[in-house]
Nucleic acid binder design. Structure first.
Length: 200
DNA sequence: AGCACGATTAACT
DNA sequence: GTTAATCGTGCTC
């Protein structure tokens, strides 16, 4: 129940990994303790042909980690203020990653509350940048191997969520991305309490 | 060297 | 519903 996911879990099709990551537990060892939550929303980005994927521009300094071994963290900075966390997928050499978009907080609630100061609990980790702020994830962990023995960032088996309870929709925030990529149903989420409904 | 823009969020009206 | 914030990245000149 507390097993960590190994690189063989991530070395598969990105869309499948995105679906199966819903229900798993993301853990950051930070400040001497565990800060964690159950993953409730993900999105898949894979291949240079996916015009929503950063790798549409090929291998660059930023995207190099997506071409690397599976299980690495790909953390990038957007809009001048936000960090977003992905886990690299696919076999080394083929670019892919799963964006972690939302969590249900489990451990380290006091630290999460402090970092998300002034917000209600429902707003703690219900967005990709919010959960990074809550768990203390930023560019320092970019490229980190989440499957190594001494890592401070990893994913555990978590809770089993029946596949019929997981919904899928197009990915969020791709207003300028051409079809068919804009409409690919590569967003997965578990519509529980504290989590999104059908869309945003 | 300069420029346009983004896998978002929070604070507005 | 609308919009400012704010800067790294990748592209053009």
């Amino acid at each position: 129940m507390t097993d960590r996911l190994s690189d063989s879990f991530f070395a598969r099709d990105t869309v499948l990994v995105a679906r199966e990551l819903v229900g798993k537990r993301l853990v950051h060892l930070d400040g001497g303790g565990r800060i964690s939550g159950i993953i409730t929303e993900t999105e898949a980005y894979r291949g240079e042909e996916d015009l929503a994927c950063h790798c549409r521009a090929g291998r660059t300094p930023r995207t190099a980690v997506m071409y690397g071994p599976p299980g690495r963290a790909y953390v990038y900075f957007v809009y001048g203020k936000h960090w977003l966390l992905n886990i690299v997928t696919e076999k080394e050499g083929y670019p892919g990653a799963v964006l972690i978009r939302a969590l249900a907080p489990e451990e380290g609630l006091d630290i999460i509350a402090r970092r998300r100061n002034g917000k209600h609990q429902k707003q703690w980790t219900n967005g990709p940048a919010k959960l990074c702020q809550a768990l203390g994830i930023d560019g320092k962990v970019n490229g980190m191997n989440t499957c190594s023995a001494n890592t401070v960032l990893f994913i555990e088996t978590g809770t089993e969520i029946h596949s019929t309870l997981i919904r899928k929709t197009p990915r969020i925030g791709l207003d300028t991305v051409p079809e068919p990529w804009r409409s690919k149903p590569w967003r997965f989420f578990y519509p529980g309490p504290n989590q999104p409904h059908s869309a945003r």
